[in-house]
């Protein structure tokens, strides 16, 4: 495991520092990195309200089909990414079940950056839900009861008592979904259309460079992606700790 990683860390420098810089600041690379990180962050942000709603309903209410719904939440993790990729494409293509509904609205999802976003929302959702659920179950009922007895409305209790207590785990779920989204490949490449500069994600660019036998260039991009996500996760982790301490 260490030797392969060493290769990833050492190979880029065959180009020399200037060569690495040049290969990473290529406009096509920058566009791909921007798309991968931007779409992953946006998808993770969209998954926050989605995940909050689903986790809330799953932990607070009993309803028929709840067990089935619970198993369904892990579907994006269990479904092979290539399968998810082609089925999302079929759904959102102009003739697909959802795509056909969006055509009159003038919204194109498949083969656009919007498609990337849809795929990343799909794969990221379980991370947010599964992070929130245990924390929601552990929320002390007393705090909510106290707020209610003191005359808070349900909405006030939610915004002033529940959400702040969930903030650290919301951030954790966001980070997990983001990390997964940045590197995601299989579920994205089918629906994205993969137009250079527009809807081409960074992992795909790594594959393209490898196919051109540009090993050093591929390794440089891979290493850059790793370092960027590492720094991002480190920052989010810090933020999460600070939030948690603030609450305690």
């Amino acid at each position: 495991m260490l030797i392969p990683l060493a290769a990833l860390v050492l190979r880029p420098w065959e180009l020399g520092a200037a060569g690495v810089w040049q290969s990473l600041t290529d406009p096509r690379v920058l566009a791909a990195l921007r798309l991968s990180f931007g779409a992953a962050a946006l998808a993770a942000a969209i998954n926050l309200p989605f995940g909050l709603l689903i986790a809330w309903v799953m932990t607070r209410y009993r309803f028929p089909g709840r067990r089935l719904a619970d198993a369904l939440i892990d579907m994006p993790l269990a479904l092979p990414t290539a399968v998810a990729g082609i089925s999302l494409t079929a759904l959102f293509a102009p003739k697909g079940w959802i795509g056909a509904l969006l055509v009159p609205l003038g919204v194109k999802v498949a083969y656009t950056p919007l498609g990337v976003l849809v795929a990343l929302v799909f794969v990221g959702l379980p991370f947010v839900v599964r992070t929130l659920e245990p924390v929601m179950l552990d929320l002390p009922a007393e705090a909510e009861e106290a707020a209610a007895t003191l005359g808070a409305t349900r909405l006030q209790t939610l915004c002033r008592v529940v959400l702040p207590a969930l903030a650290p785990s919301l951030l954790t779920g966001f980070a997990a979904a983001l990390a997964r989204g940045v590197g995601e490949y299989g579920s994205v490449i089918f629906i994205a259309g993969n137009m250079p500069m527009v809807s081409e994600i960074a992992p795909l660019l790594i594959v393209i460079r490898l196919e051109q036998f540009d090993y050093a260039g591929a390794a440089a991009l891979g290493l850059a992606m790793l370092l960027l996500s590492f720094l991002l996760l480190l920052a989010l982790n810090r933020g999460q700790h600070r939030l948690a301490r603030h609450l305690a």
Partner: peptide, 24 residues
């Protein structure tokens, strides 16, 4: 309110999680 929340969550899961499976 309870019914609306459950309905919203189930619809969301249906569209986002179940539909891709059904389409396959």
């Amino acid at each position: 309110q309870r019914a609306v929340l459950i309905l919203l969550a189930v619809t969301l899961m249906g569209v986002l999680l179940l539909l891709p499976l059904v389409v396959v």
